[in-house]
């Protein structure tokens, strides 16, 4: 290394590097700061309202005290359960076709393309679709329409994960089963599904996490209900729309309930994501 004066260009490059790397640090801090701010706001505002009442009392009228979110929680659980029970089997079967029967066909690549579009479609469009297809013919809002809207959101997620997970099952397993005389459908059901079970479950969990927080599709399919109702042919209470209504109101009791409800949804969604991650990684460690 010469001991002459250092190359002037190098100093500039070094500086540029320092600036760029500094900006990268700043960017990371920027991103993390927002996360911390949002979570802190959510937790401090939501904790205040967390109590057993939240789970046992129904939604109160405005400008009163007490009350809870029991009817909204139950309504949301029902809608999610039915939406997933309709959407997951369809998604499962479709993914199975794409991975097993039609693996290299043109139809599959078209379906994969369309599925990816549906996966990222704005959920409010799905709400509009279900409004036109279900609410109008039925003559009114209903839990069934809401559940169908959620099912439409679940299907692309489950199709995607099912296909990917099934494709990861090594072919020799299937070939061995076929060689032993097992018919194709049983090869899939007994061998492929079993091998990919953890991944399939992960996919369904992710779909549940996705629809738990969705508000837009429920806005004009289910509407809302102030009281305890299990009747799905009419409006049922549900958490996202309830939070939406409560938060816009200046009543402090309602706002407290809205934040607590938001905290509940976030905890549910994040736990489902973590559970999916844990199940997914435990499978790969086999």
């Amino acid at each position: 290394m010469s001991t002459a004066t250092p190359n002037p260009y190098y100093a500039g490059r070094k500086r540029g590097n320092l600036i760029a790397m500094g900006l990268c640090y700043a960017a990371t801090l920027f991103g993390l700061t927002w996360l911390v701010l949002i979570l802190v706001t959510l937790v401090t505002n939501g904790m205040a309202g967390l109590s057993l009442d939240l789970l046992t009392q129904n939604t109160p009228p405005p400008n009163s005290t007490g009350g809870g979110l029991a009817n909204a929680i139950v309504g949301s659980l029902m809608l999610t359960a039915i939406g997933v029970s309709i959407g997951a089997p369809i998604g499962l079967l479709a993914g199975t076709y794409m991975a097993e029967y039609g693996r290299h066909s043109k139809l599959t690549s078209i379906i994969r393309f369309i599925n990816d579009i549906l996966l990222s479609a704005p959920s409010i469009i799905i709400g509009l679709f279900v409004y036109g297809a279900v609410v109008v013919p039925m003559g009114g809002f209903s839990g069934i329409a809401g559940a169908l809207a959620l099912a439409v959101i679940v299907i692309p997620v489950v199709v995607r994960t099912t296909e990917d997970m099934l494709l990861l099952v090594p072919n020799p397993l299937r070939e061995a089963a076929s060689a032993l005389g097992l018919p194709r459908s049983l090869v899939i059901k007994r061998i492929a599904y079993r091998a990919a079970k953890a991944g399939l479950v992960t996919g369904v969990l992710l779909a549940v996490a996705r629809v738990s927080g969705e508000t837009a599709p429920l806005l004009f399919t289910v509407l809302n209900n102030q009281f305890w109702s299990l009747d799905l042919t009419n409006s049922v209470a549900n958490l996202p729309v309830t939070i939406n209504n409560f938060v816009n109101n200046p009543d402090p009791n309602w706002k407290k309930l809205a934040w607590s409800g938001a905290l509940l949804i976030t905890i549910a969604v994040l736990s489902l994501n973590i559970a999916a991650r844990v199940i997914g990684s435990s499978r790969s460690e086999k």
């Binding site: 701010l37 949002i38 927080g213 996202p240 939070i243 938060v247 938001a262």
Partner: peptide, 18 residues
């Protein structure tokens, strides 16, 4: 941590933003 940002439902972003 960054991925958690993706998991937060959008209505909570709305509430926090407001």
């Amino acid at each position: 941590a960054i991925e958690l940002l993706a998991g937060i439902p959008s209505i909570i972003y709305g509430m926090w933003g407001f």
